[in-house]
Computed example of a mutant assay.
Amino acid sequence: MLGTYFYHEILRKTVISFGTLFNDIHIRHKDNNNKSISDMKVALAYGPMQKFLARLEQQPDLNRATQITLPRMSFEMTNISYDATRKSTITQTFKATDGSNLRKVFMPVPYNIGFELNILVKLNDDGLQIIEQILPFFQPSFNLSVDLVNVIGEKRDISVVLDNISFQDDYEGDFATRRALIYTLSFTAKTYLFGPVADTPEGLIKKVQLDYHTNMDRENKRRELRYVVTPKAVKDYDGDNTAVLTFNISATEVRFTVNDTTNFAVGDRIVIDSEVMQIKEKPDATTLVVKRGFDRTLKVEHLEQARVNKLTTADDNLIDIGDDFGFSETSSIFTDSLQFNPATRTDS
């Protein structure tokens, strides 16, 4: 609830990302022979336009080179508003991992952040150079990839939309008053705000059990079938290096030789590179006959000296969040009227 401290720095990251778009803009001046005589990077700072105008007007040394002060750009965040058009179910959550722990996160809330980019120049050509380096990238939007929540590695594309362009020529006053041409570009950044990220006791689901009943009668219902599914590893986790191939094998060969079959038995699952196989026969101490492409893995060629690893329950227990895995399925038939109690994990 309110009062739970969290701070993902999403607004700060959005402001920084927006400013980064315009921090490498240059203008060039040329002589009568069209030869470049200067290349200037346009200064960029966060702050309201009025502050920079006041500083410009109060500059006591009017004989200083104009380019020391102008051109320059300033930007600021002007408003934050909720975007109902991107609304998702407020109670919906999704799971994310920080690499070792599973985290539960509510769906983010869509908000629009308004920005103003002000371009202050003395020469109109300087302003046109800057504007022309910005406008082609907004049609009318430009996507920024922002790492919104570091703890779960949540990255999203933030759409920055160019809403409006206005122009102002401040040239009122006497002859000594400095001229300032001001281009104002209004943008909307469509970002997302996340709430607190909670640790969850839930980990990788290791077992799914389903009981089928004959009818919906709560008093006399009788279960008939139990279906149990557990995950199976499709890669070697414990690095047992059980054997190695002694020859190359094609993607279709089901009989091949290894240096030693002592630790293998009929029915075992083995993995070579990324292909899982099941042993069907073990004719002698160096030969295996297998079923290829087991657990829906791809049948591929394997080279001599490739490692042949045995997949066991130890590998199944080491399956990590985000890994691919297969399934082991069992079913049981019942004629009793017992029910499974999740609290005690027994039938009663």
Rank of each mutant, 00 (worst) to 15 (best):
P283A: 00
D98I: 11
T4I: 06
T69L: 15
G195L: 02
V105S: 01
A189W: 02
L128T: 14
L225K: 05
V161F: 05
L181N: 12
G195F: 02
T230R: 10
L70V: 03
A43G: 14
S250Q: 08
D268F: 03
E304S: 12
K30Q: 14
N220W: 01
A243K: 00
A180K: 12
G203H: 07
F115S: 02
T4W: 03
N112G: 02
S141H: 09
E224H: 04
R86A: 09
P140N: 04
P136Q: 11
S186R: 13
T89A: 14
L148F: 03
T85V: 04
D31N: 15
L102Q: 13
T66N: 08
I27M: 06
V300Y: 00
F264N: 07
Y183L: 07
F106L: 12
M107K: 13
T230K: 12
Y183N: 11
F52S: 15
N118I: 06
K190W: 00
I321W: 00
E57F: 07
V160N: 08
K13I: 02
Q209W: 00
F142M: 06
G127Y: 07
D163N: 15
K30W: 06
D199H: 10
P136L: 12
N143A: 10
Y192E: 08
T69S: 15
K282D: 05
L21C: 14
S81M: 13
D174I: 13
K104C: 07
T242M: 01
E9N: 08
K221E: 11
I37D: 08
T335C: 04
F247Q: 14
D236P: 05
P110T: 15
L128G: 15
P196N: 11
I165T: 13
G267F: 05
H8G: 09
N248C: 02
T313H: 08
R255H: 01
D273I: 01
T200C: 04
L311T: 06
V161R: 05
Y46E: 15
F294M: 01
S159M: 03
L303Q: 13
L298S: 11
V290C: 06
L144S: 14
I10K: 09
D174F: 04
T200Y: 03
A96H: 09
S145T: 05
L245W: 04
K235F: 00
G322P: 10
K51Y: 10
V234M: 03
V15I: 15
N164E: 14
S17L: 01
H302A: 04
D169K: 10
G114F: 05
K280L: 14
S274I: 02
T66Y: 04
T252W: 03
F115Y: 05
N63M: 14
I37N: 10
L311K: 07
D323K: 00
N101W: 01
S166P: 07
S38V: 10
R292I: 08
I130F: 00
Y192A: 10
T69Y: 09
I152P: 08
M77R: 09
E281W: 01
V229H: 01
K30C: 07
F175E: 12
